[in-house]
Amino acid sequence: MVSKYITCLTVAKYYTLHICIFIIVCALSLCRGDKFRVAFAMIGTLRNLLPEKTQILALSATATKPTYDNVVSRLSMENVSVVGLSPMRDNIRYAVQAVTSLDDFSSKLATGLRHMQNTFPKMVIFCTKYDNCWSLYLLLRSKLGSHFTFPSDCIDLQEFRLVDMYSSASTVEMKEKVLMSFSKVDSTLRVLIATTAFGMGVDIPNIRWIVHWSPPRLIEDYVQETGRAGRDGLTATALLVYGHLHRTVSSSMKNEDSAGKGCGCCDVCALSCDCGNCCTFDLPVK
């Protein structure tokens, strides 16, 4: 239910007279509220308590036609004006790789972190399940040993870690510390292993790699999450690793057509390119 405090505040005469616009920052969550963010599912109820002439601004990084229709319906919007841009970003390269196991994947990451330490390209690894998130974190912690922190053999405090984790199970204090550290251009933290809890309101310009351990359920989720890379305009890579594709992805995600942009846009185009300038899509190891 919408908080009684919010309800009373909304219908109070002072606020009724002064509310001029109602802004939803992540409108996509309106469509996920029933399962993901429950409170968002009730925003439509809150909208009905506002004065009839209140303007509404719904913002979203991505929105398919069904999402648009859902948001308009939930917010009872009329005479809607749409301002939209394509989510395609020319500086993001896309690649897909099969992996044999989480252990093999973590070994490659650990090799790169040991060699490059605090110069390792800033990376976010999205896991669809908390168990995978936690397992990968523990594997990297074990494989890195004394190199888990920078400088090596330093005391294990959050501000010295090269790898950390962010999920709904993390405390508010820990989430704030991780975001504060990761947001620094020259942060010690280089690899963040996260669930979808990491996302809304986050804007870190120099993320060079977005890695998905197993594909998201929907192409809309994939576009949103890969869009967190390369916000400084420099080249970034979105790498999708998988083991059993048909078991983890909806048909809409598997059947999504590729829209190649030419040389260097993805690993598929790189295979047919003979320019000699296409960069590797392998994980950084040195």
Rank of each mutant, 00 (worst) to 15 (best):
N79K: 14
G276N: 08
D90M: 13
D131K: 15
V223P: 00
T119K: 13
L245A: 11
L245P: 03
A61N: 01
R114E: 11
C266N: 10
M174Q: 11
S73P: 01
L28N: 06
L271Y: 08
S142Q: 11
N118R: 13
T54M: 11
V25G: 06
K65E: 14
V172Y: 03
E176S: 14
T62H: 07
V202M: 12
T195E: 03
T280R: 05
R228S: 06
D156S: 05
C278M: 05
D69C: 07
V99K: 04
S60R: 01
H147M: 10
T171P: 02
C275V: 09
L17A: 14
H244D: 14
V96E: 06
G233F: 08
A39L: 07
T64R: 04
Y14S: 09
M200D: 09
K143G: 01
M77K: 08
V11T: 14
K4T: 13
E225Q: 13
P66K: 03
L50E: 03
R228F: 08
G112S: 09
T235S: 15
L50Q: 01
L50R: 01
M116A: 09
K143C: 02
P151H: 10
G264S: 06
V191L: 08
L109H: 03
V2H: 06
C26S: 09
S181M: 12
N91V: 10
R89E: 10
D156F: 06
P66F: 04
C20E: 13
V96L: 00
N70D: 15
S250W: 04
A110V: 04
I23C: 13
L85A: 12
V285C: 05
C133D: 01
C133S: 06
L271R: 15
M42H: 10
F198Y: 11
H246R: 12
T188M: 06
T54S: 13
T100E: 13
W134Q: 12
N255C: 09
G112Y: 06
M1P: 11
Q55G: 02
V178R: 02
M200I: 07
T16P: 00
F182I: 02
K108L: 14
P216R: 02
K13G: 04
N206E: 11
L85D: 08
S101A: 07
D257E: 14
I21S: 10
V178T: 12
L50Y: 02
Q117L: 12
I56V: 15
R231S: 08
K143A: 08
F150P: 01
S107N: 07
Y166C: 02
K184N: 07
L30C: 04
I219W: 01
S214V: 00
N255S: 14
R161E: 08
F281C: 11
L85P: 00
W209F: 15
V223Y: 09
S3Y: 05
D104Y: 12
P66L: 04
Y15D: 02
I193Y: 05
K184L: 14
T128K: 05
S86Y: 03
A12M: 04
E225V: 02
E78Q: 15
S107V: 02
S272R: 11
I125T: 02
T196V: 09
K122H: 03
C279N: 08
A110R: 01
